[in-house]
Simulated scan of single mutants.
Amino acid sequence: MSAVIEDLLRELAPQVLGVVVRRYGDFALGEDAVQEALLAAAVHWPEDGVPDNPRGWLIQVAVRKMTDLLRSEAARRRREDAVAVEPSPGEVSEKDDTLIVLFLCCHPALTPASAIALTLRAVGGLTTAEIANAFLVPETTMAQRISRAKQTVKKAGSTFAMPGPEEWPERLRSVLHVLYLIFNEGYTSSVGGELHRTELSGEAIRLARAVHAQLPENGEVAGLLALMLLTDARRPARTGPAGELIPLEQQDRTLWDKALITEGVDLIMAAVARGAIGEYQLQASIAAIHDDALRAEDTDWPQILTMYGLLERMSDNPMVSLNRAIAAAMVHGPATGLKLIDALDARLPGHYRVAAVRAHLYEKCGDVDRAIEHYRTAAARTTSTPEQQYLLTQAARLAP
C-alpha cells in the first residue's frame, strides 16, 4: 500500500468513525466496523484506485459492516429498523467529528496504556497488528487491551458529544497527556532495539496538529505541538551510522530540522503572548532554548533552570525534578545536582534515568569509580537496547 493511501486512510479513519458512532450510538461496534472498512480499502484501493469520494466509500462499507454486526446482536429486532436503509455517501453530513472521537478514546476512566492503544487504532487508523508491533507485544494481547478499553468507555456511559463545560479541562488534559505519551514513546522507545519509532512520534504530531486546528487559541494545545516539533527537530542528529545514541551536547546541530524549529518557535511565542502559561508551554520554551543554541556551550542554562523551577512547582512531577537537577548542575556545578538527585530516590525508586544522571555527574566530579558503577546500574535497568549500549560504552570508556 502506498504512503499516500496510508496517510489518507489515517486522516479519514476518525471522520468515518464519527459518522458511524453518531448514527448508531455504539462506539465499540462502530470502531470494529470502521476497522473492517479500512482493511477493505487497504486491499481494494491499491488495485482499483482511490474512489472519487474516499470518505463516502469508507462510510458506505462501514455502514454495511455495522449492519452485519448489529444484526448479529441479541437486540437485532430492536435495531433492525435503524439499519434497514444504508445511506449513500451523499446523505452523510460532512461534519468532522475527529475531536469528539479523540476525547472518547482519551476518556479519564481509561488507563494511559489503554487510551494510547485505543487512540492509535480509532483516531490514528493503525491496525491492531501495527500497534502491537510498535509496543512489542503479541497481537492478541493488544486486541484484548483495545477491547477492554472500548468496553470501559461503553460502561462509563459516554455519549457521542463534546464534554460539557465542567468536564472540559479534565478531558482535554487527558487528550494532551495521551498524545504526549505517544510522542515520547516514539521519540525514545522504552523497549527494543531502535531508539526511535517514527510511526508513533509522527502520528502524535499529526494528531496534535488536528487538535490545534480545532482549538487554535488554546495555549496548552499549541504548547504541546510546539514541544513535539522542537524536540523532533533534533531527531536526525540523535543517532549515529549504526543507530547508536548521540547525547544532546555531542550532536551535530547542523543536522537539526530548521523548518520544524522555526514552526515550533513561532507557535510557542504566539501561545505565550496570549496569557496564562501552562506545563506544555514551559516545556516547549525549554526546548526552544536548547534549539536556539548554535553550540552546546551556548545553551542558556540559567534560564532553563528558572523554567524548570516554575515547572516543578506547577506539576510536582519527579521527572521534572530530575531535569531541574541536571540544569542546576550545569549552572552551579555537579555537586549541587547530586544533592538534588538524592532527594529523588524515594520518588523514582530504581529508575534507570536517576542512575544515568548520577553517573554523569559523578564523572563531572572526577569520581570515576562511582560513575562506572552507576553507568552499569543504569544499563542493567533500561529496556532500550540503544540506551543500554550507550551506558555500557560510557562505563567502558572510564574503566581502567
Rank of each mutant, 00 (worst) to 15 (best):
V4W: 03
E11N: 03
L17D: 00
G18K: 04
V19G: 01
R22E: 07
R22T: 08
A28F: 05
A33P: 01
E36Y: 09
A40T: 03
A40L: 03
A41M: 00
E47Y: 09
D52T: 00
P54Y: 00
Q60C: 04
R64W: 12
S72M: 15
R76P: 14
R76T: 15
R79F: 15
A84D: 11
A84R: 13
K95W: 10
V101S: 04
T111H: 05
S114C: 07
A115C: 11
T128M: 11
A132D: 02
A132T: 04
A132M: 02
M142Q: 08
T152D: 03
K155G: 04
A161G: 06
E166R: 14
W168H: 07
R173N: 06
V175Q: 08
L179I: 11
Y180K: 13
L181G: 07
N184R: 13
Y187N: 08
S189T: 12
V191N: 14
G193P: 12
G193Y: 15
L195Q: 07
A210I: 15
L215A: 04
L215G: 01
G223K: 08
L224C: 08
L224M: 09
L227N: 04
M228W: 06
D232T: 12
P236N: 14
T239G: 07
R253Q: 09
A270G: 03
A273V: 10
A273I: 06
A273Y: 09
R274H: 04
G275Q: 07
A276M: 15
G278T: 04
Q281C: 06
L282P: 09
Q283C: 06
Q283N: 07
S285W: 03
S285I: 04
I289H: 07
L294C: 13
W301G: 00
T306W: 15
Y308H: 10
L310E: 13
N323K: 11
R324K: 04
A328D: 05
P334Y: 01
A335T: 14
G337Y: 01
L344Q: 11
R347G: 09
L348K: 11
V354W: 08
A356T: 14
E363C: 06
G366Y: 08
V368G: 01
A371K: 13
Y375L: 08
R376P: 05
R381M: 09
P386V: 12
E387G: 10
